[in-house]
């Protein structure tokens, strides 16, 4: 952190590194319930996260010390609940833009917040908010990124990728992390000053398959569709045979072409 002290105002200024933890999100949430108030921007990063969570029960397969498992503590109490999806946009943009700095092509976001490169999954985001009434008291942003892992076993082999697989060299995890701090702060400050339209436009720019024809599956039915937009509340707009449809998360599956 010595070289990075002034590159952010708050994200990563309180940077806690752990050898091993069940889940960085859980660890951070426990810290917030302590009596001592936790500074906004606090980051937990673990070499090994043995019970990291993906979506619901899907477990993220990670080799110790090879990848980024981190959680960032934010307090977006300024954000109206109806605009909650913009927090997801800001976080997705921060992570994808930071990684794009290391790669020849832009990193994409698979709706709503998976991190993709070459149609393979580079990482994921898990956001857990605490609400009091209609105020977002705090947000714990969990980030899992495949960095130096060389191989993925089983069915993941075809679906997952890492920075190493793309660049054929190792990256310094903390250096990647400090890049994430910088871009996370940039987009978070945009969110704080209500630049919703800017965030929306940027999000569409890096949205995987935006305005492209691609294959999808719903209830076992396979079809071609074109993503035409994402609504304020996060719903996906898709054109199918000239008609516009709206999908909620989990209502639609992407079919990957690799």
């Amino acid at each position: 952190m010595q070289n990075n002290t002034f590159s952010t105002l708050f994200v990563g200024q309180n940077f806690i590194k752990l050898k091993e933890v069940d889940s960085t999100n859980n660890y951070l949430k426990k810290l917030t319930s302590n009596s001592e108030p936790l500074p906004e921007g606090t980051v937990i990063m673990a070499d090994h996260q043995f019970a990291g969570r993906g979506q619901q029960e899907s477990v993220w397969q990670t080799e110790p010390g090879k990848n980024i498992s981190a959680s960032i503590y934010l307090k977006p109490s300024f954000l109206p609940l109806k605009k909650q999806f913009y927090l997801n946009m800001a976080v997705s943009l921060g992570v994808s833009e930071a990684l794009s700095d290391f790669l020849p092509h832009p990193v994409m976001v698979k709706w709503p917040n998976d991190i993709y490169y070459n149609k393979k999954k580079l990482g994921g985001i898990l956001i857990e908010n605490t609400l009091t009434g209609s105020t977002i008291k705090s947000a714990v942003i969990g980030i899992g990124l495949n960095i130096n892992q060389q191989n993925f076993t089983g069915h993941l082999g075809a679906k997952a990728t890492s920075l190493f697989q793309i660049l054929h060299k190792e990256a310094d995890l903390e250096f990647v992390m400090t890049k994430i701090f910088v871009y996370m702060e940039k987009y978070y400050l945009n969110l704080k000053s209500g630049k919703y339209e800017f965030l929306h436009q940027q999000y569409l720019k890096c949205l995987l398959n935006y305005n492209l024809s691609a294959g999808y599956r719903q209830n076992g039915r396979v079809f071609e569709g074109i993503i035409r937009g994402v609504e304020d509340n996060g719903l996906l707009n898709m054109e199918i045979d000239g008609n516009l449809f709206t999908f909620n998360f989990k209502e639609i599956e992407y079919i990957h072409t690799n």
Binding site: N88, L126, T130
Partner: peptide
């Protein structure tokens, strides 16, 4: 909602 988990 939309993969954002809100503890109430």
């Amino acid at each position: 909602a939309m993969k954002l988990f809100n503890e109430i």
